[in-house]
Structures are given as structure tokens and as C-alpha cells.
């Protein structure tokens, strides 16, 4: 009985030491893991895009589709301030990109950028500028369902650049662009690739 009790105490001490040791090791590993590069730029860009795309889809469905299209309690409009309307999903996306640009500038550790661009932009500022942007937007337009990835050097800094197709998800996306006086293309239809999301992450080489 005494032996059993002694063994139990020994076991308890052993398990405790093992547990404490594991906890310390796990803590140390966790701290290191947070500082150790363990994700590729491509995976990072894909993850960022997944979040952006999901947020935008939720806004489109749960807010715009439900309140503006289905229940008709409010409208969604490009001129949302004048018309006291909801911002369009693409505008919400742009506002997010602008806020990230401001916040990233103040925090170099999370220095990345994203933007919504098109080779048929209504606003010329949203046209591609770099070779990777031009090639990427053309690629996603020509190869539906595929993304474009490239490395590029801009201003002496190396970047990983990813381009994801931006598609007309509702008839109103196509008709709004087709009818806009500044649109260089007027034959969009639902499901067409209208542009792309460009994500740019600085990398060390």
C-alpha cells in the first residue's frame, strides 16, 4: 500500500514535471513561432484574399441583397451620401483598401497593400500601372478560375504580387459598368471578369 502510494506520488511528480516542461517548451515554441517566417508569400496573399473576398461576399449578401434587393428597405448606390444609401460592395472594398494603406504606412511590420483594378476602369486611377499588374489582370480575364502570381521590383524593393479575378456577381454590377459614361467597356454580363484584386507583399531576397 505504501509502495503504491509512493509510486503514485512519484508518478504525479513525474507527470507534473513533464507537464511543466512541455508547457515551458510550448510557450517558448509559441513565442518563436510568432517571430519565425513560416508562411510563403503566396499562402499569405491567398489567406488575405480569402478574408477580403469573404467579407465582401457577406456584405453583398447579408446587407445589400437582403436589405436593398430583397426587403427593399434601403437602396445601394454609388452616390451613397447624397442618396442616403448603402455603399456598393466594390466601394466598401475600396474604403477598406484605403484604410489599410493608411494604417500600414504607420506600421511597417505589416506593410502590404491591396487594390481593386481593371483593364477597363471607370476611374482611370484604377488602371494597372506595373507590368505585373497589367499581365495579371489580363491573365485572370483570360483564364477564369485561376490566379496570377509574380515577383516584381519597384523602387528598389522586392514584392510578391498576386492578382485575383473580380467578377460581376449580379446583373447590376454589369449594367452599372455598361451604363456608366466613363466606362471603356459596355458589354459586361453577369459572371464576367471585370477586373482584379491586386495584393502586394514586400519580400526579402
Amino acid at each position: 500500500m505504501k509502495l503504491n502510494a509512493l509510486l503514485n506520488v512519484k508518478s504525479l511528480v513525474g507527470v507534473s514535471v513533464l507537464g511543466l516542461g512541455s508547457a515551458f517548451a510550448l510557450t517558448a515554441w509559441s513565442q518563436d513561432a510568432g517571430e519565425t517566417p513560416s508562411i510563403t508569400p503566396r499562402s499569405m496573399a491567398d489567406a488575405l484574399h480569402m478574408v477580403m473576398d469573404s467579407d465582401r461576399a457577406v456584405y453583398t449578401r447579408r446587407i445589400v441583397n437582403r436589405l436593398a434587393a430583397k426587403d427593399k428597405v434601403i437602396t445601394a448606390s454609388e452616390h451613397f451620401e447624397d442618396e442616403k444609401a448603402l455603399v456598393l460592395p466594390a466601394q466598401m472594398f475600396r474604403f477598406g483598401a484605403e484604410m489599410v494603406a493608411e494604417r500600414a504606412e504607420a506600421n511597417p511590420d505589416v506593410n502590404f497593400s491591396y487594390s481593386l483594378q481593371s483593364i477597363w476602369p471607370i476611374n482611370k486611377q484604377n488602371a494597372p500601372q506595373t507590368e505585373a499588374e497589367k499581365a495579371g489582370l489580363q491573365f485572370v480575364a483570360d483564364n477564369k478560375g485561376q490566379n496570377y502570381y509574380a515577383n516584381e521590383e519597384l523602387g528598389g524593393v522586392n514584392y510578391f504580387t498576386a492578382v485575383y479575378a473580380d467578377t460581376a456577381v449580379a446583373p447590376v454590377c454589369a449594367s452599372c459598368h455598361n451604363d456608366h459614361k466613363d466606362s471603356p467597356r459596355t458589354d459586361f454580363k453577369i459572371g464576367d471578369v471585370m477586373g482584379g484584386v491586386v495584393i502586394r507583399i514586400p519580400i526579402e531576397q
Binding site: 449578401r61 441583397n65 430583397k70 449580379a170 454580363k189 453577369i190 459572371g191
Partner: peptide, 14 residues
């Protein structure tokens, strides 16, 4: 309109 407010447009938008 689907359960999650997804939207199938009338006549596929055509």
C-alpha cells in the same frame, strides 16, 4: 434568394 441571402437572378440575369 437562398438561405444566406445568396441571389439567383431571374433568368440568370439574361
Amino acid at each position: 434568394y437562398g438561405e444566406s441571402d445568396t441571389h439567383m437572378p431571374a433568368r440568370g440575369g439574361n
